[in-house]
């Protein structure tokens, strides 16, 4: 029985749901624009504006970089998070509660796992598009200094997966649109405090532990390592953290879809 297995059934056809979303998206692609511009605006206001006041930031022993170079990776990580969260919460909630899309999908060979994997994939693709576009802008603005920065694209995919899967799992518990304020309540402090705009060392040691427990911190640290070319085996911790989050969120979402819709 689907319910007693740790991972509910699927037919391996999640890509069909991605295809469906792409079809619907072709009519509404303009929504991408705002998500793209947000981090770009931040890059210019923070990086260029505040950067002029702040000057250079020390990264690693004896190495300093301009503030824009320091902050760009964090903005890229955050845009992957924002894109994924937006799609996996608001859009999924609409499809789940109002459009009842998954009710019709589950009448076909697709199972709850396909629904979870399909929607999470779609949401992380959105995060990927945002962060890919941002990387281009950052490169044009001179905030990209090394070729390992290209690896920020797969890194953004990983961040997107982690946040999309937890975002969608959380959405299955939402009762009304008002509950989405809690999502903002989680996202905004993470965006501000995950060593995004200043180094982790700014915090007292006790607070450093708190910050290091949050997922965006690992996303930011991972992308920053890649974009500044300061990769060491420490990056594996970030990768493991985010991959575990993505995997847990995906299984959790599948189970929630099964228990909500296959009653």
């Amino acid at each position: 029985m689907a319910r007693s297995l740790p991972l509910p059934a699927g037919a391996g056809m999640a890509r069909m749901l991605v295809e469906r979303n792409y079809r619907s998206f072709r009519r509404t692609w303009t929504v991408l624009v705002s998500g793209f511009f947000e981090p770009v605006f931040f890059l210019f206001s923070m990086g260029v504006g505040i950067g002029a006041l702040v000057g250079d930031v020390e990264v690693g022993v004896g190495r300093t970089v301009p503030y824009a170079v320091f902050v760009a990776p964090a903005l890229l990580a955050a845009s992957a998070m924002n894109g994924a969260v937006f799609d996996s919460t608001t859009n999924v909630f609409f499809k789940l509660k109002y459009a009842r899309l998954y009710d019709s999908v589950l009448a076909t060979p697709l199972g709850p796992r396909d629904v979870a994997v399909g929607e999470i994939t779609w949401a992380l693709l959105r995060g990927l598009v945002y962060s890919g576009a941002f990387l281009v802008v950052a490169a044009l603005a001179g905030a990209v200094t090394t070729w390992t920065a290209l690896l920020a694209v797969p890194a953004a995919t990983l961040i997107g997966w982690a946040f999309a899967s937890i975002g969608m799992a959380t959405t299955t518990y939402m009762r009304s649109w008002a509950d989405f304020d809690f999502v903002q309540l989680a996202i905004l402090p993470m965006f501000l405090f995950s060593a995004t705009f200043y180094p982790l060392s700014t915090y007292p040691p006790a607070l450093q532990w708190v910050v290091q427990a949050t997922p965006l911190y690992h996303g930011v640290a991972m992308v920053r390592d890649l974009m500044l070319g300061t990769v060491d085996q420490g990056i594996l911790v970030h990768v493991a953290y985010l991959a575990a989050m993505g995997a847990i969120g995906t299984v959790w979402t599948s189970r929630r879809i099964a228990s909500l819709l296959l009653r």
């Binding site: 469906r20 459009a99 009448a107 076909t108």
Partner: peptide, 29 residues
């Protein structure tokens, strides 16, 4: 389910798609 056709009590058409796209997408499932 691969061999069933289901017409639920409440229509669950995909309102974000056109009439023909509804059938295309459903067939892809």
């Amino acid at each position: 389910r691969a061999r069933l056709g289901v017409v639920p009590q409440r229509d669950t058409l995909d309102e974000e798609l056109t009439v023909e796209e509804n059938i295309w997408v459903y067939g892809r499932y």
